[in-house]
Design a protein around this nucleic acid. Structure first.
Length: 376
RNA sequence: GGGGGAAUUCCCGAGUGGCCAAAGGGGACAGACUGUAAAUCUGCUGUCAAUGACUUCGGUGGUUCGAAUCCACCUUCCCCCA
């Protein structure tokens, strides 16, 4: 399932295998919350930009079009015509992002739908059933993503509850996978570490969930209010307690520099809405830093977004053209920008993998960690 | 030829005596965005030695302590009647 092929300090190069293929790690997973990458990208585009894993969302697909409909149509892979690995997030992030629309109890969370306000109850069992219907390769545990900073006592109680929810997730997941008509009997369940910015809570929680012997572990509840330095500190504190032979996933992170620094701290899987969202807003990543294509200085710039980029956008189109498309609000501009940014993220992890293989990772990190964080 | 209406800061447009450097849009300029309620949100948009000063509301002159707002004439545009 997961095999480490090389390490460099805490950084790891590995291969992960699931029902829909092999994933080379470290990897960036491309976010398509509702079964599509925002910016008008299809599964076909995902292949072209080097995507290895697509990520979709339990809460959103449950609301629309409905997970039972997706199951009846053959599962999410068939529905969106993506044959590669899919990870589904559990709805735990919506406990954070839709904080004003939900109530948490021991049994689970009651949401007021952000679409029409109707009540939706989602607990560990519901989340597992929805993800089973979607047929993803990796189902994430249903957790509470707690905003930072939050009071110690609240975080301690919340992390303990999330750990109890994890045991319920595992029981329900095992039951569902054993059923005859299950969409993806090889679906895995990954656990999620919580504990806010408190190292002792993080470590205690990690020890507890590691005992469940799950095929993968994630660090959740980061990049939700704390500083970058605080985030790195937590990763460094928890990492030693994560099983060495299982993939580690840093949920929702992050900037190109965050990913590089995450790899350096022992992370294998990443995902983030940032490349797609920033692309839609005109902020494009390059190997020299991020540019804002809407800036007047690109009006007559005939060079590509990044001369070192091999993406479908950079192979053909100039900054001047992209600038025009954004100013004119042509949707092609957004699409070309998203193609570029996601290609860039996938290429970033590909170059990190190569650097790990040839033993250049430290040099690569030294060259790019600061450079990638620049805005130019 | 006769009658009526209008000219406001980059554009549209509110304002009809002091609370007006002038509402509100748009555009321009810039910023934010981290398991997506985000093709969204925020800032800024007369000048300067700048908690104040100066210039500005088609032009010129006037009334007034005070004028984008009132008066006279001029210019331009629009509408109606011939």
């Amino acid at each position: 399932m997961f095999r480490l092929t090389k390490t460099c300090g805490r950084a790891r190069r590995g291969e992960f295998t699931c029902a829909h293929g092999m994933v080379q790690t470290p990897v960036f997973m491309n976010v398509g919350t509702q079964g599509a990458i925002k910016g008008a990208l299809s599964a076909e585009d995902l292949a072209e930009i080097g995507c290895q894993v697509e990520l979709s969302n339990t809460y959103h697909l449950h609301l629309r079009p409905g997970d039972e409909l997706v199951r009846d149509l053959g599962g999410l892979h068939r529905f969106m015509t993506w044959d590669g690995p899919i990870l589904t997030d559990s709805g735990g992030f919506q406990v954070f992002s839709l904080a004003g629309l939900r109530k948490i109890k021991e049994e689970g969370v009651t949401f007021a739908s952000h679409l029409d306000g109707h009540r939706i109850f989602m607990g560990p069992e519901e989340s597992m059933r929805i993800q089973a219907n979607l047929g993803s390769d990796i189902a994430m545990a249903f957790d509470e993503c707690v905003e930072n900073p939050s009071p110690y006592d609240y975080v301690r109680a919340s992390a303990a509850r999330t750990a109890r929810w994890l045991a319920r997730c595992k029981a329900e997941h095992d039951r569902l996978c054993a059923q005859e008509d299950t969409v993806n009997p090889a679906q895995m369940l990954w656990g999620i570490n919580q504990g806010g910015t408190y190292e002792d809570l993080r470590i205690e929680n990690m020890k507890t969930i590691a005992g469940l012997d799950l095929p993968g572990y994630a660090i959740g509840g980061l990049a939700v209010g704390e500083s970058t330095e605080a985030m790195y500190k937590i990763i460094e504190a928890v990492e030693p307690y994560m099983p060495k032979d299982r993939p580690r996933y840093l949920m929702g992170v992050g900037t190109p520099s965050n990913i590089l620094e995450g790899v350096a701290r022992g992370i294998d899987f990443f995902d983030c809405v940032m490349p797609a969202r920033n692309a839609r807003h005109g902020r494009l990543f390059t190997w020299e830093g991020a540019i804002n294509i809407k800036n007047a200085k690109y009006e007559r710039d005939e060079s590509p977004i990044d001369p070192r980029c091999g993406c479908p956008t950079c192979r053909r189109f100039s900054r001047a053209y992209l600038h025009h498309l954004f100013k004119a609000e042509e949707m092609l501009g957004m699409r070309l920008a998203v193609l570029h940014n996601l290609y860039f993220y996938n290429e970033l992890t590909a170059r990190i993998r190569t650097a790990l293989e040839v033993g250049d990772f430290a040099a690569f990190r030294a060259e790019y960690s600061e450079k990638l964080a620049r805005k130019i």
